[in-house]
């Protein structure tokens, strides 16, 4: 475990904050970009600028990854479709329908209904 909050002045290694400052000064002066913010939510100047600084690298990595995945899927065509849906599609629609019904009491679950048999 490191000792948090304590910075040793005679440390051989430069501190994190010095490294950061050097890195950002370099990047900033090399590129010198400042975006304008439009959002109602303050995105923070630093957050915007970081995105513009990492954009090229992450964009390139993403393109390489996409091509690599295409090549991979060409070789194994039997891969099932990646279904990322995390929620049963009927959940929210069904819920809305059931709430529209006038008689809410009728939706109460049967006293002895087992788990999973409670829908509608």
């Amino acid at each position: 475990m490191k000792h948090r909050g304590i910075e040793y002045s005679n440390s051989f290694f430069p501190t994190k904050s010095i490294c950061l400052k050097i890195a950002f000064l370099l990047i900033f002066f090399l590129t010198g970009v400042l975006p304008a913010a439009y959002s109602y939510l303050d995105p923070g100047t630093g957050s915007f600028i970081l995105q513009t600084l990492i954009a090229a690298l992450f964009g390139a990595l993403f393109v390489v990854k996409s091509y690599w995945q295409r090549i991979k899927s060409w070789f194994c065509r039997h891969n099932p479709e990646d279904n990322k849906s995390t929620v049963d599609s009927e959940v929210t629609n069904k819920q809305l329908k059931s709430e529209s019904s006038e008689d809410k009491g009728a939706e109460r679950f049967e006293k002895h209904a087992g788990r999973g048999s409670e829908s509608e």
Binding site: S17, A23, F24, F28, L34, A36, A37, T45, G46, I49
Partner: peptide
């Protein structure tokens, strides 16, 4: 670090 560095620099 970026937030810290640009905290007092207005966007242009």
């Amino acid at each position: 670090g970026s937030q810290n560095y640009f905290a007092d620099k207005a966007p242009s």
